[in-house]
């Protein structure tokens, strides 16, 4: 009797394990309509597409605000991302620094609104769009260094991994789930940490496991996963 019981427990265990594996196999698509964040109403409707969007080749003067952007680098305004854990919100001075010299749009309603804040000496109360739970330790600087500075990925691509295609947006909206499973789905990928011949990218090779990962026999390239110990991200 005991044996049968034990066996059935074992089989149950197997079934559960197999079930969880099967659930694993069909991963949800990462960006679904459901995972879109709420539509945030900002104090000024900031046109990201106009600032960061691609230039319109048919409009060399770039004069039509409804078409084409300025191709301004994300890091021009979001300057803290590359040197601190939080990206921060650009100060009002940053906006005014350019806009006091752009007479052509000075009378547009959004810019008039902007200068009202400036004259009142008040910061624009922007609302947070990408908000992580308080128990998460996320570092912008590491991701920027890793992908933009060391692997020479374009800024918009690297930022877009988590922020989506902001250059197409007016007010930014969360377009990735920003859940732990989603973060881990990228940290589980094998990213190259060395280039051809085993030279570390940016004079640094990274691995977060207990052992240096073995070099790929063919290319001499070493690949490793991102940090995967719980305490890297959990406070």
């Amino acid at each position: 009797m005991h044996r049968i019981l034990r066996l059935s427990f074992f089989l149950m265990g197997l079934l559960v394990a197999a079930g969880s594996h099967a659930a694993d196999a069909q991963k949800p698509t990462l960006t679904t309509e459901d995972s879109l964040g709420p539509q945030v109403t900002q104090p000024i409707e900031f046109p990201h597409y106009r600032h960061a969007g691609l230039r319109n080749p048919n409009d060399p003067t770039n004069s039509d605000p409804n078409k084409g952007g300025m191709e301004i680098d994300c890091q021009y305004c979001h300057t803290y991302a590359r040197r601190s854990a939080v990206a921060g919100i650009p100060p009002l001075q940053k906006c005014i620094g350019c806009h006091q010299n752009i007479e052509s749009v000075r009378q547009k309603p959004r810019i008039v609104e902007l200068f009202k804040y400036w004259d009142a000496k008040k910061a624009v109360p922007w609302k947070k769009v990408h908000d992580l739970p308080d128990f998460v330790r996320f570092n912008h600087e590491r991701h920027i260094k890793r992908f933009i500075e060391q692997q020479n990925r374009p800024t918009q691509e690297a930022c877009g991994y988590c922020h989506g295609d902001v250059k197409e947006m007016t007010v930014a909206r969360r377009s990735k789930p920003l859940t732990m499973g989603w973060c881990a789905s990228c940290h589980q990928k094998e990213h190259p940490v060395t280039g051809e011949g085993g030279a570390p990218i940016g004079n640094q090779a990274y691995w977060y496991k207990f052992q240096k990962p073995a070099a790929d026999k063919s290319g001499g390239e070493i690949k490793a996963q991102g940090p995967n110990d719980c305490w890297h991200c959990h406070k």
């Binding site: 394990a17 594996h21 694993d24 499973g181 589980q188 496991k209 207990f210 052992q211 240096k212």
Partner: peptide, 26 residues
Amino acid sequence: MSVGTLLENWSEFRHFHPVDDKPHDP
């Protein structure tokens, strides 16, 4: 972390240290 990864890396999560072939570094 998915259950699959957890099981796959079980020995590493439950790894007890120190052992010769896996020194602490850095």
